[in-house]
Design a protein around this nucleic acid. Structure first.
Lengths: 224, 224
DNA sequence: CTTTCACATATATGATCAAAATTAAACGGG
DNA sequence: CCCGTTTAATTTTGATCATATATGTGAAAG
């Protein structure tokens, strides 16, 4: 039950879906910076896709808040204002701790072990100072838990929140390295093993609060 | 500074944007029932638009949860499960009362009067038993407040929640008429005038809870 | 009941048109 | 004469459409 290579898995999907996922990952894992413009033609070359699939991927990501129409019908990665960051902070704290706790209903030793394995990969990336790996495994950690929760609507909203948050977090990571980044994951895994909802909620709240605070500081200093 | 007629306003937009808005309104205001299938070709005729704009509108609305891909590549309006309704209920109560209260920061006598005017139209629709008018003005009421709140990210999430909720609410309205539908709007307007955040939050919580409860009952009875 | 074939539908391409940005040139004030 | 502004030409980019391809659906035949 090994995971097939990424490109191999994408081959079997319709082009618009594969294009969407590749572009989404570019936003999530730091290939696109806040404020950066994207063009349809540029993406057709970079993603080796036709114009129609690229346009549809852009529409979807725009609807999810990962991209933004400008007045002049160009598209770019949104730059967060301080007010918008507070909106994100509220929504993340209002939804994601709850969503994480929903996973306890369905968690099994196997599924918890899977989450723990991702946490181990995350620790490796942190130790190596691998910013891109940190972002990728941090995302995988939280959404592996959301998969267990089996709550598609809340997970979709969380996805949108991460898409809006990721580019700014990427900038912060690049500045401060991986050492000072949030990692309450060990506590979270322990709470899952103990089936302790309160401790799990607290770990996730602290994890998110730390990340938000880092972005808040960078934003206040005009570094984003 | 008069508002142009709706069709006139849509004329000036790119076709894919106008198509998106028309299709969105069809979902919001009850022209499409839960489970109903939509085809690209059918929409090109109904919306008098080309194939490309329709496809892009469908992609956007799918990302917002208003439509859903099926395993075969057809598209339909999602049918809520009981579990998904509870997800929606949680998210609505976690976000929308807060978002409503944010409006108090920016509310002016003029903007409150505008909200009150919509409430009057809503009452007229209720008195007339006009289900479509109820849905439309109820939406306008809440989103007029969200406009005042000036919180684009939370408002976008609320939009997605309404898109997911509306088709089921439409079914309920058609069954029970307009008399038993939630209307804590008078209390909400009064709370806004009094700048009373606690009363405002309470009015909105009760308003949403009533609507959710109606859908919950209908869903439990298999009427949706 | 399965296979096959025809039809309906979705997917994807490339061409064409329209709009906007960019560059280049012309102009005028200092 | 120089610099900033405006205006015109070029080029890039986005929007839309017509069409070709691929896929899934359903009906008819074996």
């Amino acid at each position: 039950m090994d995971v097939p290579a990424i490109d191999e898995a994408l081959e079997k999907l319709p082009s618009h879906e594969a294009t969407y996922r590749r572009l989404r990952d570019m936003v999530l894992f730091g290939e696109l910076a806040p404020g950066q413009a994207v063009t349809i033609q540029g993406l057709t070359e970079k993603l080796e896709s036709g114009m129609t699939p690229v346009r549809e991927a852009i529409r979807r990501l725009t609807a999810e808040g990962a991209l933004e129409f400008q007045d002049n019908r160009r598209v770019c990665v949104p730059r967060l204002t301080a007010a918008q960051l507070e909106e994100l902070a509220f929504a993340k704290l209002a939804l994601e701790p709850h969503l994480t706790c929903l996973a306890l209903r369905n968690a099994t030793p196997q599924s918890i072990a899977h989450v723990a394995a991702i946490d181990a990969e995350l620790d490796t990336a942190i130790a190596a100072g691998d910013v891109s790996g940190y972002l990728r495994h941090n995302y995988r950690f939280h959404f592996a838990i959301y998969d267990i929760a089996d709550a598609p609507i809340l997970t979709a909203i969380a996805q949108s929140l991460w898409l809006r948050f990721a580019p700014s977090l990427r900038v912060v990571c690049g500045r401060i390295g991986t050492d000072n980044l949030p990692d309450q994951h060990t506590e979270a895994v322990a709470a899952m093993r103990a089936n302790d909802a309160d401790a799990l909620r607290q770990a996730i709240i602290e994890d998110m609060t730390q990340g938000i605070q880092q972005v808040r500081l960078a934003l206040a200093n005009g570094k984003i």
